[in-house]
Design a protein around this nucleic acid. Structure first.
Length: 355
DNA sequence: AAGCCGGGGGA
DNA sequence: TCCCCAGGCTT
């Protein structure tokens, strides 16, 4: 297993050849100190300025971590400030109605996250006196907080020495070691690498490296602070299978009227039983296009593209004279506080109904 | 272990 | 057009 460490008899080569720092697929000894200090130095110098890095308030850290689950940083940044403005602390969040929490979440997707966030806020407020548990083990008990998120909050907000493993960390470790570690072995490896003096910074630095430098495709090895310690320099055996995407066309009705109460839009609420976007509000879907065409519409007033799970939709929006389905007239001023689906919000924006 | 949940932006 | 993202929960 150590056969690659002595292929050249000269000891002076030891630190020049990266493979010698990786033994049997693990980073070892002195190179680990190097790795930590160089990664942390890079992070201090180059880390992106993100809203949740302003301080270590556990509420802010928690909110960012929930939002960031399977969601890109850019999308989170767009929602983060407004969410903070509406719900400045865990107590305010716990006192809010679920509908208003969902409204602030609109467009982020995975709406169950918002419900679990709200439920967790109520538990923190009622059972923990408004203070967050300070250990990963206790945080894990809250809804919506799994192994990754518990470790992230505990390390970043409270300095507990626990490593995180997300998609970024997995990729970084696999590339550095050249070892396709997965599952429990990956978590063990990450914990071995962790800088126990600065666990929060270290964890964020690992994820930052994966997000900014050690990207899935075309990693920027030229700017990587630990490239000299890397066994693969960008190679990665991928075991991921790409889910095939379907294409579909969908039609929605835009009903818009002005009366004594001002401008109103006709919306309907998705079933609370629905697996997809349960309880969220949207425009009525049109099943039978012939009815709209016979109503005098030759062309849709709007066409948008929309991706949802594994389906890419081409969405046509039709102005219709009267709603044919059950639903509710909503004043446009109230739309900001409605739990709209991302698609509904997109359509209403493009149509100029909301800013 | 595998399936499910939203949405968007870059390559 | 395709791919992938600071995961958690259920079965």
């Amino acid at each position: 297993m150590f056969n690659n460490s002595q292929e050249n008899g000269r000891a002076g080569q030891r630190c020049k050849v990266n493979k010698h720092l990786i033994i049997a697929g693990h980073i070892i000894g002195a190179s680990l100190y190097q790795f930590r200090s160089q990664l942390l130095a890079w992070y201090e110098a180059r880390a992106r300025e993100l809203p949740w890095r302003k301080n270590r308030d556990p509420y802010r850290v928690w909110l960012s971590e929930i939002m960031l689950q399977q969601t890109r940083v850019a999308a989170v940044v767009e929602h983060y400030h407004e969410f903070q403005r509406r719900f400045p602390d865990v107590k305010k969040l716990s006192a809010a109605r679920e509908a208003s929490v969902l409204a602030a979440w609109s467009g982020l997707g995975y709406y169950r996250r918002a419900r679990m966030l709200h439920a967790a806020a109520r538990i923190v407020a009622q059972k923990h006196g408004g203070k967050f548990p300070r250990t990963a083990q206790e945080l894990r008990m809250l809804p919506g907080i799994g192994r990754y998120t518990a470790a992230a909050i505990a390390s970043i907000a409270f300095g507990e020495p626990v490593a995180v493993v997300d998609g970024n960390v997995e990729r970084v470790i696999q590339r550095i070691t050249g070892n396709p570690l997965r599952g429990e072995k990956l978590w063990t490896e990450a914990n071995g690498w962790l800088d126990r003096q600065r666990p929060g910074d270290f964890n964020q630095a690992m994820m930052e490296l994966g997000a900014v430098v050690c990207t899935p495709r075309a990693p920027a090895c030229l700017t990587c602070p630990v490239v000299h310690l890397c066994a693969t320099r960008g190679e990665l055996a991928t075991g991921k299978k790409a889910a095939p995407r379907k294409k579909r066309e969908a039609h929605y009705a835009l009903n818009y009227r002005t009366n004594g109460r001002g401008c109103e839009v006709f919306l309907k609420r998705r079933s609370i039983q629905s697996s997809l976007m349960a309880g969220m509000w949207e425009l009525p879907e049109i099943d039978d296009l012939s009815q709209v065409r016979s109503g005098g519409n030759a062309e849709p007033c709007l066409t948008v593209r929309h991706s949802i799970t594994v389906t890419d939709y081409t969405v046509r929006v039709w102005r219709t004279s009267a709603p044919r389905s059950k639903g509710k007239w909503i004043p446009v001023e109230g739309l900001n506080n409605m739990a709209l689906t991302g698609l509904a919000r997109k359509i209403l924006r493009k149509a100029g109904v909301i800013p």
